[in-house]
Amino acid sequence: MALSVSGLRLALSGRPILNGIDLAIAPGQVTALIGPNGSGKSTLLRSMAGLQRPDAGQVALNGAPVATIPPRELARALAFLPQSPIQPEGSTVRSLVERGRTPYLGTFRPMTAADRRAVDRAIAQTGLGDIADRRAATLSGGQRQRAFIAMTLSQETPVLLLDEPTTYLDLPHQIELLRLVRRINREMGHTIVMVLHDINLACRHADTIVGVRDGRIVLDGPAAQVITQDGLRVLFAADLRVIQPGAQGAPIVLPE
C-alpha cells in the first residue's frame, strides 16, 4: 500500500512544525524517521495517521487523501501506535490485543471467530502466547511494548505507524523489539514507518532512513548512503564520526 506525503505544512498554536514535506514511503519496507528533538518527526507520523489536520498539502494512501477516507475504513488500512498508550485498568495481554479489532466491531457487532483468530495470530506472532492471560499491569517494559505491537497487528492493516516504539526500553529490549518489527515486515509484508531516536539502531533495522530537521526532510535513502558525516551535520548541526563498515554492514555513528 502506497503512502505518500506532498507539500505538507502544519503549525501548532502558531508555531510552524512542518514546512513543506514531500515524502514517498516505500511499500513493504521499514522506514525510520530520525531527527533532533522538536524536528517535527512525531507530528509528521501523526499527520500520516490522519490524526493531525495539515494547514496545506496532504497525506495520501494509494492516491486517496487520508482526510477524505472514513475513519473506520482508514483504521482498517493503517494502524498507529502512540508513544505511550494508556493501559486500561484491569486489562490483560489478550484484552489489550483485542482492542486492535475496534475498527471491525461496534455496539451491535460483537467479536466473531474471525476476530478471535486475528487476535490469536497477533499474540502468536509476538511470542506472547505463554502470558496471554497475564494482567497487563504485571508486564515488563519489553513485554508491554510487544503487547502493544500485537494490538496494532490484530488491527490487520497493511500499514503500521509506530511512534518511538523503543522508548523506556533498555538496549537489549530495544533490539529485541526492532527485530520483531523487522520479522513482521519480512513475514507479512507490512509497510512500517517508525520514529526512532537511536541512529545506530535505525541503521540496522530499517531499509530507509528519513531525516527530519526543522519540519523539512533533509535525508531520505538507505542508511549506507545517507548516514554520512555530511548527512548528520545537516541533520543534527553537529559533528559526529561515522564508520562505514563496507558493503554489507550498516554505518556506525560515534560521538566525536
Partner: peptide
C-alpha cells in the same frame, strides 16, 4: 490518539 486511529 489510539481511539481515533482505531476509527472512533
Amino acid at each position: 490518539d489510539l481511539a481515533r486511529s482505531q476509527g472512533l
